[in-house]
Write a protein that binds this DNA or RNA. Structure first.
Lengths: 240, 240
DNA sequence: CGTCTGTTTGAAGGATGTCAATTAGCGTGG
DNA sequence: CCACGCTAATTGACATCCTTCAAACAGACG
């Protein structure tokens, strides 16, 4: 009972399929997978895909745009725990508790594919490659989180910013975009929150990076001028 | 071709089975699961269960004792990314890259059950409950990591220490031990590394906590005197 | 009993946060 | 289309928490 517009959501024709969950699936398997995914209306900037505490039902693959995950706890400030770019999977951290542990907010106009988890789980029984891809996805997220722990506990503000920019650059490259020129979909405040820095610090360091000819930043438009130097900085190679 | 001593490793007779991976399995299913796990010789304090970069083959369930995960990156300092207590699963972050992303070191005499991952994956095909438990486990680890991110980016040193102690207390309670009296198996340096603090800071804050009658600490022996206050502190309820 | 490692304590300095004010950007509505 | 107003971003001055350096102390183990 497919409606025509759902065609657009088919993995076969999706340019992201080589990065996304069905990565390792054959044509036929991909069809079974396709059958369970659902399209959502595009989210506008600032709109919530889901709210912290909502019952866990699905995971979501980002199709276009970008999202942030915000976790509020107690009376304390919110914590921005993740940014999601196209092909990345949202919601895997909700499986355990049956509720999503943070709200997912669109940073710009964003479309996602919804994948009901119970059906995904069922399907993963028959498709070892899909199951494996799921495990891999979660495993990668664990590793990324551990890298983030290191960033927050050992790196200086400069190193954090450099890491952040290099990380974005890498992710854009993998998606076929320029690793040197891109647009930040998030505000400075988001970056600060994510990196554990005050907004003002983010601003100041971006300014310093510009002075040192590492980057050229106009508002949210970023041009990386010296990626090697940024990478070195991100790893803490202090040479001054 | 079981040898007698392997009997000890059977989940059926393991006191941790209600917390561990086979949690939701029936008797018969647990037998299939039992069949794939392997015993390892106990690790001595300081010994490595595995080293960063080792090819990923198995996950491990802690049976007794405790472990830490250490990730070295570049020339920078090591980062302690996790402590593992009995019933917890080690190595899930290695699935993706086929290598373990950090070394796992015993903090005291420690025994583990080895679970070859390919066989676990196979078995999870037939046992939905086992599969689910695996997903849940990874999902929980993701959530824990996100909580840790918040700790490192928003909390003061006092809040971090309080969180750490409360967290340990909770985990001991769940395992049937006293949540008020326990022994730290890790050094102050480990705690500092994990929490993103200098050793000296850890020491000073423990001292301050003692002055305020929150805890009584003698070396590695901890007595929690005011758990409520610690919990409040951990959440950032400043009332000074 | 001595050595090594782990822990505690003190003093000083620095990196980053906070507060405050200004400027820029952007959507909205007249 | 421009003006308005709000939010976002920048910049400066100051405060502070934590680190770093240094040294004494304690505990474990040969």
């Amino acid at each position: 009972m497919r409606r025509p517009r759902l065609q657009e959501a088919r993995c076969q024709t999706c340019s992201l399929s080589s990065l996304c969950l069905p990565l390792a699936l054959g044509t036929q398997e991909m069809d079974s997978f396709d059958a369970i995914i659902q399209r959502r209306a595009p989210l506008k900037k600032g709109e919530a895909l889901l709210r912290q505490g909502d019952p866990f039902t699905s995971v979501f693959a980002v199709r276009s745009g970008s999202l942030k995950q915000i976790t509020s706890e107690g009376d304390g400030e919110d914590q921005l725990t993740n940014f999601y770019l196209p092909s990345e999977l949202v919601g895997l951290d909700g499986i355990d508790e049956k509720h999503y542990p943070g709200s997912i907010i669109a940073l710009e106009t964003t479309t996602v594919c919804e994948i009901p988890f119970d059906r995904l789980d069922q399907l993963s029984e028959a498709l070892p490659e899909l199951r494996n891809q799921l495990y891999r996805n979660m495993s990668k997220e664990l590793r990324d989180d551990r890298r983030m722990l290191r960033l927050l506990s050992r790196k200086t503000a400069d190193e954090r910013l450099a890491s952040f920019l290099v990380n974005l650059s890498t992710r854009f490259r993998r998606r076929g975009y320029s690793p040197y020129s891109f647009r930040l979909s998030m505000a400075r405040a988001d970056i600060g929150n994510y990196l554990g820095l005050a907004v003002e610090t983010v601003s100041r360091i971006i300014g310093r990076f510009q002075q040192h000819k590492l980057v050229d930043v106009q508002g949210r438009e970023v041009h990386i001028l010296d990626l090697d130097a940024l990478e070195a900085l991100a790893e803490g190679d202090h040479e001054h």
